[in-house]
Every structure is written in C-alpha cells, then in structure tokens.
Design a protein around this nucleic acid. Structure first.
Length: 141
DNA sequence: GCTGAGCGA
C-alpha cells in the first residue's frame, strides 16, 4: 500500500529532528579552564615568546618585536638564582593590533640562531590573598 | 646555559 509506506518513512525524518534538538551540550565551567592550558590563549596585548636562545636578552627581545609595534614591556624570564635565561619571555604591546602583528612577524622566525615561537600569553595567576610584602607578583610592573 | 618544553619573582 502506498499510504502505509509513506507513513513508515515519516519517523525517519522525525527521529533525526529530535536527535538534533536535544540540549545535551552544556560544557562544564572547567572546560574553559582546560582549553586555556592546551589551546592558544585568546587575543591579548601580552605575548608569550618561547624557543629563545639562552643568550637572548630582554633588550634583544624588545628590539626584535619593536619592528611590529610599540613594545611597552619585554622580559626574558631568567632563573633567579643562576641568573640565566630560561629560554622564554614575554612581550607586551600597546594594542591588540600590534600584538597580532608581532605574532605574525616574529612567530617561527630566527632570533640569535633559534627559531622562536610567539603566541598570546595566558592570563597570569588568579587573584589570591594579599602577600605579606612587596615581593608579591601583584605589586610588580 | 652545553642537554630545548614551556607561561613569568
């Protein structure tokens, strides 16, 4: 019968409709935090630069990134006791546009013989209870 | 700081 076959075909489309209407995609709040650790951070004026030569200094870093925008602050992270570079650093631009240009211009480029990687820096430590003195990172820069 | 992934005193 033509009517019976038409009625039997209908549920197929309905089933598909309901399966795509189920609101089962509520990502837990921790998903954003987990993504922050692996995926690229969201745009910021702050850049994380890795792959630096141990001989690369803050001056060289700021000098190299200044070609693409106004570098407000640059820092090669060094070990406090040894004083040697840890091989990565941070660059802060004045604007998001300059930060984007800085990444485009410096990511994958050579600096002091090493291929460096520039990307948006992750937001720093979550605001916690105030420390005893001015040695707290929140009192810096 | 030669040994090279990473997110900062």
């Amino acid at each position: 019968m033509a009517l019976r076959t038409a009625a039997a075909a209908a549920p197929c489309g309905l089933r598909r409709f309901f399966s795509t209407s189920i609101p089962a995609f509520n990502f837990p709040p921790s998903a954003a935090a987990a993504a922050q650790q692996r995926e690229k951070a969201e745009p910021s004026t702050n850049l994380f630069v890795s792959g630096l030569s141990k001989r690369t200094t803050t001056e060289k870093l700021q000098e190299a990134f200044s070609q693409f925008g106004e570098v407000l602050h640059a820092r090669v992270v060094t070990d406090r006791v040894s004083g040697y570079s840890k091989g990565f650093g941070f660059v802060r631009y004045a604007t998001l546009e300059e930060a984007a240009k800085g990444i485009e211009g410096m990511d994958g480029k050579f600096l002091d013989g090493w291929v460096i990687f520039a990307e948006y820096a992750r937001p720093r430590q979550p605001p916690g209870p105030p420390e005893n003195n001015m040695a707290s990172p929140y009192y810096r820069q």
